[in-house]
């Protein structure tokens, strides 16, 4: 392991993603193997977005210099946000613009544009992860800003006001 490589990395990636999915499914009482209802899908993606917001929000003070840049903590947070963002993208079945959601009907009217926004976010998150793994604080600050912008661009187009 390189000196700056976060020690917990073996616990991240697909294993962690599955653990988070399992926790979310357990929390919302859906049964493994049964098709999700629209309401379940809305609950799950809302939970995934809420967690993304919580974890990404912890990166911002580091980017702003309010707390010290901690590569180990940042790497854990970025890994979680990346996994959660990929999960959330899977819970947009047709008809789930109706209900307790701010998802705009534009998601289903312009699916290619929505998918493009999702890809843009993944690109920014990958750059963010690289900046953390390289312990490059300036690149990290820049990547947090561009990731925020990617979030905002999607919210502006596809989140109802």
């Amino acid at each position: 392991m390189r000196p700056n490589e976060p020690r917990h990395r073996r616990a991240s990636g697909p294993g962690m993603a599955l653990a988070v999915v399992a926790a979310l499914v357990a929390a919302f009482g859906t049964v493994q193997g049964e098709p999700l209802t629209v309401d379940d899908a809305i609950k799950l993606r809302r939970a995934a977005f809420a967690l993304q917001g919580q974890y990404f929000g912890q990166l911002k003070p580091m980017a702003a210099g309010a707390v010290a840049f901690d590569t180990r903590r940042a790497d854990a947070l970025v890994t979680r946000v990346t996994a959660l963002s990929q999960m959330a993208a899977e819970f947009f079945p047709a008809g789930s613009d109706q209900g307790n959601t701010k998802a705009s009907a534009a998601i289903w009217q312009r699916p290619d544009d929505f998918a493009q926004r999702e890809r843009a976010l993944q690109t920014e998150l990958a750059a963010l992860a690289r900046s953390v793994q390289a312990s490059d604080e300036n690149a990290f600050k820049s990547a947090v800003a561009t990731t925020s912008a990617a979030c905002k661009a999607c919210h502006e187009d596809f989140r109802a006001r």
């Binding site: 990404f56 905002k152 919210h155």
Partner: peptide, 15 residues
């Protein structure tokens, strides 16, 4: 309406 409902202000990710 947006202030009463808590829809505004928003952070830099649009939340």
């Amino acid at each position: 309406e947006s202030v009463r409902n808590g829809d505004m202000p928003q952070d830099d990710t649009g939340i």
